[in-house]
Design a protein around this nucleic acid. Structure first.
Lengths: 351, 351
DNA sequence: CAACTGATTTAGATCGATCTAAATCGTCGC
DNA sequence: GCGACGATTTAGATCGATCTAAATCAGTTG
């Protein structure tokens, strides 16, 4: 059997200690780079470790020391590029701290999320970075705090009693609306989709407040489907009927990409007949043609922030809960343009 | 201290056993759903576990039983949507088996990859799914086999002595070239980029063979930059100069997206003046306008395949190495069209 | 030279489960 | 009523590191 072979010839700290004629305890100190051991012993032990091909056994260490150098990351969706960039940021920070990431995907389902959190706990992760699934109860987070499991909320939050790294969505929305308003647009719609969670609500509220502040209709909010192909088909919602708009602010870049495709199919020229502003500014935004004006939310930086919050908390568990709210930044590109009369309207009326 | 509190009030199997008036061993059997325990004892122990809020300690179990229900996944790049979809597939299968994924990012650097593999080994993963960084030596994989660490190569391979889940790139290239040739194109270029690895080589060879089989020039292979914005700027390579092409097969959809943007900037109409075929068919391909013809490689299915290979090997370590090579499939959309004389050429000449 | 440093080193208990080998129990056949 | 047998249950060793508290050692000091 392989596993037997593996077990038999595994080199343990005891083997190392014996070969180096020191005690297990000393060998352990060497591994942990304790300053207590003398330079010669250290060298001797290290040489033996090299020679025997010793492999550190985290599992044993974890059991005794009650830390695993492991953190859990729970995100609702792997394939959205936004979350991927977030993950890359988290990974960078956690990796640099010598820890590893256990990644799970909740699919935005609370039941599943609960199972996964239990599993992480059983695996003994030192902490968790969680983007709570939509409709997550506050009690869940409170339960985890009760477990003494360090937790950082990212992008979405269900309680203030716990660290949070996210985005100032309201400010982002204001920038988007102000930009379009300054270009002369008055019929501005908000296209959104997806499950309802704090980030959703903050964007909607942000849009409404910004519109209101400009004296524009804050209720021009329209739901579009989830699948990108279906979003494209829904583009007509904004160009036909009584509620015709000349510009749309999108919930995120996925919506923007879908609408962009749909408007293309309708023969409408974005950046001329119609203005489009995305949200998040994922890499695709600059690759689109016409290039997409979008509110950058810097997911990778948010991920790094979340990672740092967690590391800080591991170092000092009694810190008061902190918030890291990043200011987004509007990137103006080709998809938004000066309002030039209702060319779109005329086109429609003549048809 | 929190950690002390945590340690103190942690309920262990021994606590459960005592409360249920059984031995630690019996309680352990209950957890593992052994058929050896009687129905009543099982019910009693489970009730107590519930009541005390017992949490299973994987760490302790792992130490004794020498398995961790954990697997390592090493991929070269998190932000490429292709790898994300792959990861989603792996995650689904591994998760369904009750195991979790430890994810790390090699950045396509061999040195970093080596560090990460060591780290995974220290963490005691039960197996590894590896997409080898470019220029990975065969000896690395052999070393891991020597460690008795079950390994599956995915998408790229450096040895045949080890499981592999990947794509029949040659077949994909043949479909792309045949498609364009049948539309009447003769000046077909291959646009590629990125580090050299088995998947790279197989695509290049596949393109050349397919061109040769059609009696077309197999050497029309052109390198483009890595960044998508830079790819766009390089689009002129295909439309100007002596080596003007009427169609391009792209190394992957990222290149296709970049070239699409660049051709747009040059005022060239894709699907009319010029044909473009992508590779991989990530979700973006169908969202592009004009819709991108692309060779689907089904990354999510490949991920699932890799996961299954690994699970099988964990179950039967002595299985002979297996290969799972998925046939790609051309999805014809708007970006490729019948060759209609050199309208592009004429346009250029008149300029 | 005994007592007292500070710097190293160490024996042995410990973390919380699993595994082995043996004990216990009820029942059945003779 | 005794040994046997299948079904349950269990005591105790074990995995491989870390932690505690104490031992050892080389210099100093009074």
């Amino acid at each position: 059997m392989l596993s037997e072979g593996r077990k038999k010839n595994r080199v343990t700290l005891l083997d190392v200690a014996r070969h180096a004629s020191v005690s297990r305890a000393t060998a352990s100190l060497v591994i942990r780079k304790s300053p207590l051991v003398s330079t010669e012993t250290r060298a001797k032990v290290e040489a033996v470790m090299q020679e025997l091909g010793y492999v550190y056994n985290m599992g044993a260490a974890r059991l005794r020391a009650d830390r695993s150098l492991t953190i859990g990351v729970v995100i609702p969706n792997l394939v959205n590029p936004f979350f991927t960039e977030l993950l890359a940021g988290i990974d960078r920070v956690i990796d640099a701290a010598g820890m590893v990431v256990i990644l799970v995907n909740s699919g935005d389902l609370v039941a599943r999320q609960e199972t996964l959190l239990t599993r992480m706990r059983e695996h003994g992760v030192d902490g968790i970075i969680l983007c709570p699934a939509a409709e997550t109860e506050m009690s869940l987070v409170e339960k985890m705090v009760e477990w003494d499991l360090p937790l950082v909320q990212v992008l979405r939050r269900v309680t203030d009693d716990c660290d949070y790294a996210g985005v100032d969505y309201a400010f982002g929305m204001r920038q988007a609306v102000d930009h379009l308003a300054e270009l002369g647009h008055r019929d501005i719609a908000f296209a959104l989709h997806g499950p309802v969670h704090s980030a959703y609500q903050e964007r909607v509220d942000g849009f409404r407040d910004a519109m209101q502040a400009r004296g524009l209709d804050p209720e021009n909010v329209i739901r579009v489907p989830h699948q990108i192909a279906a979003i494209a088909e829904a583009a007509g919602l904004f160009t036909k009927g009584s509620r015709r708009s000349s510009a749309v602010v999108c919930f995120n870049d996925v919506v923007a990409l879908g609408l962009s495709a749909g408007l293309y199919d309708l023969g409408i020229s974005i950046g001329r007949d119609f203005s489009l502003v995305g949200f998040d500014d994922v890499a695709d935004a600059e690759a689109m043609r016409p290039r997409l004006t979008s509110v950058a939310t810097f997911p990778e930086a948010i991920g790094e922030g979340a990672g740092k919050l967690l590391l800080d908390r591991l170092a000092q568990p009694d810190l008061a809960p902190r918030k890291l709210v990043k200011a987004p930044q509007l990137h103006i590109r080709q998809s938004s343009a000066i309002w030039r009369g209702s060319s779109l309207g005329r086109q429609q009326e003549s048809g």
